[in-house]
Write a protein that binds this DNA or RNA. Sequence first.
RNA 1: UGCCUGAUGGUGUAAUGGUAGCACAAGCGACUCUGACUCGCUUUGUCUAGGUUCGACUCCUAGUCGGGCAGCCA
Length: 592
Amino acid sequence: MNAADSDAAAPTPSDFIRDIVATHVAEKRFAMIVTRFPPEPNGYLHLGHAKSICLNFGLAREHHGRCNLRFDDTNPLKEGIEYVTSITTDVQWLIAGWADHCLGFKPTGAVPAEITSNGLPDHYLAPVSPGAAGEPFSASGYFDQLYAYALELIRSGHAYVCDLSPEETENYRGAPDKPGRNSPFRDRSVAENLDLFSRMRAGEFPDGARSLRSKIDMASPNMWLRDPLLYRIRHIAHHHTGSKWCIYPLYDYAHCLSDYLEGVTHSICTLEFVDHRPLYDWILGSLGLPRALPQQYEFAKLTPTYTILSKRNLLRLVHEKTVDGWDDPRMPTLSGMRRRGIPASALRKFVIGVGVTKFNSVTDIAVFEHAVREELNLSSPRRLAVLRPLKLVLTNIPADEIIPCQATNNPQDEHPSVRPLSLTREVLIESEDFAEVPPPKFFRLKPGGEVRLKYACIIKLDEIVKDADGAISELRCTADLTTRSGQPNSDRKVKGTIHWVSASLAIDAEVRLYDRLFTVAEPAATDDFLQHVNPRSREIVTAKLEPALATATAADCFQFERLGYFIPDAKDGAAGKLVFNRTLTLRDAWAK
RNA sequence: UGCCUGAUGGUGUAAUGGUAGCACAAGCGACUCUGACUCGCUUUGUCUAGGUUCGACUCCUAGUCGGGCAGCCA
């Protein structure tokens, strides 16, 4: 089943933003629905971004519109090409299989018919930002036009150059319940503003010496309308524009205009930008622009339990080496989750399933885990592996005998394929599958008890052998070979079935057992989330695997029967060494 | 004492004046060569107080509680 099919099976439920868009479509208000996903390249994409990606690209997809991947790269201090690369990769991975026209990159080749038939904004045929077709969009690609618009704002008296220092600017701004004061530089002439602004661009002034400000209302109850800055001076190279600029636009100025330049119709962001919306509208409105203006809509961020999602905090986990990097399988980053074996389809199912609202909710991570298991259960071939081996000798099987068995690859398939498995005299079982003093309702191996070795036969425990220290060194059992598949007693029932591998044939692998990174449900709400890192978030064992696993690659996710889902590590698994990551355990009603 | 925004079972989300539904979680049971999967059943909800209405989660008024806003970050 490919990604597109799996999404088609579960149509996206509606939400307040989709309702708005649907209304606009019904009114034929726009020739085409255009959205954008605008990350700043200053960190890796995470679960929260997945929600925004699926919303924005999903909307474009549903309406045969377009969604641009646009880097909001207006602050070169924090940004870098490493992030541009990873974000591009992650977006492509998450929505792989979705139609080309909403993949987010500068158009290449022929325009799809369903778009031409629905009208086309001119930018589609002639991208406004420089760069080759197939590249993502970026705010920095619009710096020339943004500068021209700033000149326009100055000429029309909507902006001025301010000489206040950052500290003074803050003082003049007032407080939420106290109006601010006008800057003493607010009433400069247009000519002086034009002169100063061009000299800012030319590099005549040091960082922070002057800024370009909008002229709105220093007494506005909305702090974002108190003459917010449009441009600041930063003598620093930009990862995309190099040393061409030493003034850089701020988010509020660059974002609305980038949206406009791309023909964006619906500019969707998170709730903290609600207060900025009047500014978004003010800038576009002050310019007297000829084409239809984009509108901003806001939704609530995703907050899963036992997870931290803010970029600042994820950065701390990386810098303080709580994890091994942005792509550590315990991280909620797209790259971390991909490495851990989370399928993109499960991620999409989850973020679409939680819905889009304006309510700051906390989503139980169990919902996410359910989505992952649901996908993996259908797609993962089963294998046998033993994480913590305990030796078991089948005393009635000769040492040199190999008894052939057949194992089902995936019982969820309509016509499951099988693979051969070999039963030998010595096998390894999971140590937790044996209890010398069993608790009530223990279905596994116990003194005098019987269990089935999955795909093989029923065995009976005869003897527990201990070493000098009293530790169990091996279990001696009798195999009832008449209970094998195809044999007369194959239908005999026993309560427990356990997994196993042949001691002589099994192969070694390093297996990394991951658990949730935090021990508290809402780590971000605590004084210091680092105090609540789960000390057992990663346990590494040397496991014994059935031989069929020797050739596994990072493209293959497996279910180790009765244990969980596992995937070869994409990074450390090279050079003939087998390394598996546990994606997730199976649901375990017994453990409770 | 400012502005913005929100509130439906334990959690998330529908119902847009007409039977409060779905998913996750929890519990019980069936099935089982995975204590998985699957299937069946069950528990639990409209923030409060008024008002409009034949009828209110939905509309009105007042309150309560929560989130956001004072970066030359996005």
